[in-house]
């Protein structure tokens, strides 16, 4: 385990391969909830938290249960079940603590389960840090760190996007492009500009 590895994971997930803009994971809530900054931030913190936690949980399940038992082909079922249960828990907690936030998220909170970023990162962790179902050295900390960095990248994209879209409220955008279509075009140009980091190395 060395710090260069961690730095590489951090940089590549926060700046180069922002999950939304290069792997299209978590796109639906990204487009749907990024109209204003406050809920966008709340959503991305929730996503960051869920991604990090589920990275831990799925790694443990894979390493100590699925891999030794030779049931790795069932990983999709197990992972999504764990994530769904976990999200339900988060949902109940938010409902208790902040009913206003809860009301705002509406349909999108249960849909965090179907936020592809969460399952996507879990699967990616397994693909990247397991070789032939054996954990590579440092695999656990890499997985957790990858979860955190993906969440940070998500938050960054969400923050930029929501600020841009708040500003667009004052502009006379062509009617047929309002909302979703324009959001995609902005995302496209954002993704183009983040290509500047391509081939990054120290």
């Amino acid at each position: 385990m060395n710090s260069a590895q961690f730095l590489a994971i951090l940089i590549s997930n926060v700046f180069i391969y922002i999950v939304i803009l290069s792997r299209f994971l978590g796109l639906c809530p990204f487009i749907a909830i990024s109209k204003e900054t406050k809920p966008a931030l709340a959503m991305s913190f929730a996503v960051t938290f869920v991604i990090t936690a589920s990275s831990i949980i799925t790694w443990v399940i894979y390493r100590f249960m699925l891999a030794p038992l030779g049931m790795t082909y069932l990983r999709t079922v197990y992972f999504i079940l764990v994530i769904a249960a976990f999200v339900q828990l988060v949902e109940m907690v938010i409902k208790k603590i902040s009913p206003a936030t809860y009301r705002f998220f509406g349909i999108y909170l249960p849909l965090i389960t179907t936020n592809c970023a969460v399952l996507g990162v879990a699967v990616l962790n397994i693909d990247m840090f397991f070789v032939n179902d054996k954990a590579v050295p440092g695999s656990f900390s890499y997985s957790v760190f990858q979860g955190i960095s993906v969440g940070l990248g998500y938050t960054l994209a969400m923050l930029l996007m929501s600020a841009i879209r708040e500003r667009l409220d004052f502009c006379n955008v062509p009617k047929c492009l309002k909302d979703f279509p324009l959001a995609f075009i902005i995302a496209s140009i954002m993704s183009l500009s983040f290509m500047g980091f391509n081939g990054f190395r120290f």
């Binding site: 923050l159 930029l160 600020a163 841009i164 708040e166 500003r167 140009i189 954002m190 183009l192 500009s193 983040f194 290509m195 500047g196 980091f197 391509n198 081939g199 990054f200 190395r201 120290f202």
Partner: peptide
């Protein structure tokens, strides 16, 4: 210094454009 492209001016300005509302 560290990117894959030799020049970064256009990318840098575009990224900061995206951050301007913020």
């Amino acid at each position: 210094l560290w990117g894959g492209y030799p020049e970064g001016v256009s990318y840098a300005i575009l990224m900061m454009n995206a951050a301007t509302p913020l």
